[in-house]
C-alpha cells in the first residue's frame, strides 16, 4: 500500500465527529450564553445604565464568569459539551486567555504567564486586528468613491 493509499484508508475508517449532534449542542449552549447576555443587558438598563454602558457591563460580566468557571475547572466541561457554542462567544476568548495563564504559572510571571498568555488567543487578536484594518481601508475607499459620486 502506498502512503497515499494508506492515508486514504486510515481516514476512511476513522470515526468521524457527530456533526449534527454537535451542531445542535453548540446552538443550544451558544444560545443560552447569548440569551444570558441579553438578559444581563436588560438588567443593567433597568438598573439605570445607558445602553452602551450596559453592553460593556455585559461583556465584563460574561468574561468574569468565564474566568471564574475556568479557574474552578468547570468551563472545559461545558466546552466539551457545547463545542463551538462556548468557543465563539466572548466567554471562549476569556477561557483561551486564562487557561494558559493557569497552566504556565509555575514557569514564572514573566516567561510563564506573561509570555504564554496569548498562545491561543494571540492569532485571534492579530488576525482580528488585521481584518479590521482591511475593513477600515475598504470603508474609507467606499466612502470616498460614494462621496465623489
Amino acid at each position: 500500500m502506498t502512503n497515499a493509499q494508506y492515508k486514504k484508508y486510515a481516514d476512511e475508517r476513522a470515526a468521524t465527529s457527530p456533526v449534527l449532534k454537535n451542531t445542535v449542542k453548540a446552538f443550544l449552549i451558544g444560545g443560552v450564553i447569548c440569551a444570558l447576555g441579553q438578559g444581563l443587558l436588560y438588567l443593567y438598563m433597568w438598573a439605570g445604565a445607558e445602553k452602551q454602558t450596559a453592553s460593556t457591563l455585559v461583556s465584563v460580566t460574561l468574561v468574569g464568569a468565564s474566568v471564574i468557571l475556568t479557574a474552578l475547572d468547570i468551563y472545559d466541561s461545558i466546552a466539551k459539551f457545547g463545542g463551538a457554542g462556548t468557543l465563539v462567544p466572548i466567554t471562549g476568548f476569556a477561557n483561551a486567555v486564562v487557561s494558559p495563564a493557569i497552566d504556565n504559572k509555575a514557569e514564572g510571571y514573566v516567561l510563564g504567564v506573561g509570555a504564554k498568555l496569548f498562545t491561543i488567543a494571540g492569532p485571534v487578536i492579530l488576525y482580528g486586528t488585521l481584518a479590521s484594518v482591511i475593513y477600515g481601508v475598504i470603508y474609507v475607499i467606499k466612502s470616498m468613491v460614494l462621496g465623489i459620486v
Binding site: 475556568t70 466546552a79 466539551k80
Partner: peptide
Amino acid sequence: ERQFRFPLEYGSQRPPT
C-alpha cells in the same frame, strides 16, 4: 496535554480518534 496539545483548562472537543 500541556506539551503536545492545549492548556488543561482550555475548553475544546477531542476528535473520536
